[in-house]
Design a protein around this nucleic acid. Structure first.
Lengths: 135, 135
DNA sequence: CCTTGACCTTCCCGTTGCTGGAAGGTCTAT
DNA sequence: ATAGACCTTCCAGCAACGGGAAGGTCAAGG
């Protein structure tokens, strides 16, 4: 199967698939004419990788997950600990983003948003004290 | 004031401050010996930039905010609309992250996490149907 | 048989926002 | 005079690709 069909089948752009080969994540065989030739197993792996990426796993984590996926002897605990770690990473990121948003909301709420130059948002950015709470 | 003191005063690494000069965000005057020379106003700007970055504004948005900050004629509505846009960006990202986390939690909950090879997490990544709901 | 257009190949640059390091100049204190 | 703590520039690299150029290949149609 050529890379176009592999792209179609996995939902990943050709560029991404070539990149995954560059970094040794999934290296297909080559046809006589030099074209990449993907098996249906390869497509499954690519699809697997796409899903894992969408769930927020980094490339290196995906490499790890893929080798676990292909290793029929692996223990489920190895995979679960990766997943739990990722969940806690995401929770941390969620907290950070929520804190940012709340801060911005506090500043925006104080701002008239009219033609006058007084702007509590800029003042907040210029003055740490205003950023602290402003509740 | 040398870059070291500017770093101290603004809380930004020297490398970052030089980078901001490279991209024309804040260009200080130079002393006779070629060293960068920061004024206290420059330090305020750097501090302002650092805060805006922490709140999730991109460099280009910061460039915009800084010029608004320095323009005493600006209207507060310009700033507010930037802030509101950023808030809605963050909310979108929050939703994505929450969806990822919930998916992972669904998968992890089904996984024994023991020495056996059966792993619903990997199966979920391999099989779209399992990713859908699995509630 | 030739051409057209859709594929495919490699290669290199750009993105975002820095961070690290090397090679060298300057300043201050001993 | 020399050490060390600064400072300078430039070069390279991170993640995870995307865009685009220059060129090879293949299948269909005239």
């Amino acid at each position: 199967m050529n890379i176009g069909a592999a792209s179609e089948g996995s939902g990943l752009p050709s560029k991404t698939i070539r990149y995954y080969e560059d970094i040794g994540l999934l290296v297909p065989r080559r046809a006589e004419n030099g074209y990449r030739d993907y098996t249906t197993d390869d497509i499954h792996c690519l699809t697997f990788l796409g899903r894992a990426r969408k769930l927020g796993f980094s490339i290196e984590e995906c490499r790890n997950l893929l080798s676990l996926y292909l290793d029929k002897q692996r223990s489920s605990s190895e995979v679960k600990s990766l997943a739990l770690q990722k969940i806690s990473d995401i929770n941390e990121r969620l907290q950070e983003l929520t804190a940012m948003r709340d801060m911005l909301q506090n500043l925006a709420r104080e701002c008239h948003g009219d033609a006058r130059p007084e702007c509590p948002i800029l003042e907040g950015l210029a003055n740490a004290a205003l950023l602290k709470e402003s509740r």
